[in-house]
Structures are given as C-alpha cells and as structure tokens.
Simulated assay, not measured.
Amino acid sequence: MERFVDAAPGIRLWTEERGDPDASPLLLIMGAQAPGLGWPEEFVDLLATRHRVIRYDHRDTGRSTWSFEERPYPVTALAQDAVAVLDGLGVERAHIVGMSLGGMLAQLLVADRPERLLSATLIGTCALSSTPYTRPDGTRTPPGALPGIDPRVLELWSRPVPEEGLTAELDRRVEHWRVLNGDQLPFDEDAVRARERVIVEHTGHHRPGTAHRRADPSGMDRTERLARADVPTLSISGPAEPVFPPPHAHHIAQVIRGARVVEVPGLGHALPRQVHAPLAAAILDHTAGDALATLL
C-alpha cells in the first residue's frame, strides 16, 4: 500500500507498506540520494514475512518533495523525516534498518528518540562518535584514523554530475553501483540497470540528485548519548565494504552500548541478490530476539 505523509510544511514523503499490517513495524531508511526503491524487492519481501515493512523516499528523492534548492535543510532534518513517517502511519514504535547515510540517521534516532524504537540495524555506515576504536590488540585508534573510503569511490564522487540523457544517466548509476558492490561478489549489471530504470519511472524523471551531499552535516555527534543507549542494536559488517571498511562496524559496536556485530559474507556497499537471504536472516534474528525481550 502506498501513501504520502506530511513531514514538514511543504514537504510530503512517499511511503509504501507490505506484510501483515498487524505485525511489528520495521522501517527501512535508505542512504544519500537513494529512494525507498533502493531496497530490493526480494529483500523487502523476505523481511515482510515477519514484519509490517515500511520504506519511503527521502525528501529530494523519488516521489517525495524536491525542495533543497528553495529551502536548504541540514542532514539532521532527514532523521526527523523518519519520525514523521512513523507518525503519519500511526506507528508508535518500530524496528529500524538504516544503510549508509540511513545508518547515520538511525543512530540519531537511537540517541535522540529511543522511545520510538524497538531495535536498530546499521549497515554500511560509521559511528556518530568521537570515541576511539579499540583494536583486538588493545591499541586505541581515533575514528579519523580508521580506514577511509576506497579511492575508486572518491574518484567517482568527485566527478561533476551533469544532467544528461537517460542512457548516460543510467550508465553513470551502473558504474557507481559497480564500484560500491565491492570485489567479492559478481556484479549483475543487467539487474542494476533494470532497477534504476524502475527508479526513474517511479521518480518521474532521471535528473540526478545532489541535495544530501550539500546538506549541512553539522551537529551529528552523539558520543555520550550512544554510550548510554538502551536500544538493541545490530551492526552489520561487510568484508567488501568500500566506503566504511570492516573496522567501522566493530567501532559502532563499541560506541553503542550493548550493540553486537554480524558479518554478511561478500557484502559491500550495495545489496546484490547474493546477500538478501543472509542479511534478512540476520535482521530477523535480531528483531525476533528484541521482540521477545520486550514481551519479557
């Protein structure tokens, strides 16, 4: 079921729900400039076997309001939008799953709105904390010294994003996902191109979005609040992750009280078919345990 919710004056967000409406809600929060359809259908269906799954388009993506040029906003506003989605759909508390920037937004909710969460799962992201990372040998490393973004990704992100024709834009997106996929799993170019065509049709145009990379990222450190968080949190480690390599997932588990790490074999910074089943299984195991703890 699709519907729009009002997130702020002049801002409407597209949402979609699937699964049993009486099941525990699970909100999917995508990464920068990625609409809700960035969550693959097969993966959403796997989660919907046990949850009322909600995905939505961030503002300036998909069918949601594109407003940044007229009314710039900070990154933190995107976390407030996630709460607005829950409010608009009448959801008091939900499990949340955030990927990339979505994982950062999820941490903001863990820190600032824990009363709205049943659990959190973080994928392909970094900790919103200045706490040093303690390596297995006991040495402590500042977050800024953790492995950085793969140079191939940085080179792609440094390129200008011109508004060209549909074919050129699809080529750009496919190249982007090829690099984000990592080096451990085959890259299915045909599947990615088909998905991006669906996203273009859903959006109504193929213009590239850049609002989220230009939004003000200040005010996101949550060191103290994450250290005393009480939201059950799962940090997913991807061994092929080119944006936030594996130490970042373990750093998150050290930063957020009680968080644990699960590795998904082959996972990079994308969601190819091969990771759907193991990733969904890890999330469903996490949410099932947290639901039982809530009942007890």
Rank of each mutant, 00 (worst) to 15 (best):
P245A: 08
S24N: 13
G103A: 12
E263A: 11
L267V: 00
F187N: 08
T15H: 05
Q184G: 04
G31R: 03
L101P: 02
F68Q: 07
G88L: 03
E69V: 10
P246W: 14
M104G: 14
R135W: 00
P25L: 02
T139W: 00
P247F: 07
A249Q: 01
A191T: 09
R207A: 13
Q274H: 10
A34M: 12
Q33W: 00
E115S: 12
H205N: 15
G124Y: 08
A281C: 10
G90E: 10
G144E: 14
R50T: 13
W177A: 05
R257H: 07
M1V: 14
Q184F: 02
M30L: 01
E115Y: 09
L292Q: 14
T121S: 14
L154K: 08
T76E: 12
G266V: 01
D216C: 04
L26R: 03
T61I: 04
G266E: 02
L185G: 01
L146I: 04
H205Q: 05
E42D: 15
G31H: 02
L271P: 03
V91G: 02
S158Q: 11
P160L: 02
L154R: 13
P147G: 06
P25F: 06
G289A: 11
P239W: 06
D22F: 00
R18C: 15
G19W: 12
H212L: 09
V275D: 04
L296T: 08
L296F: 03
G289D: 10
T49K: 15
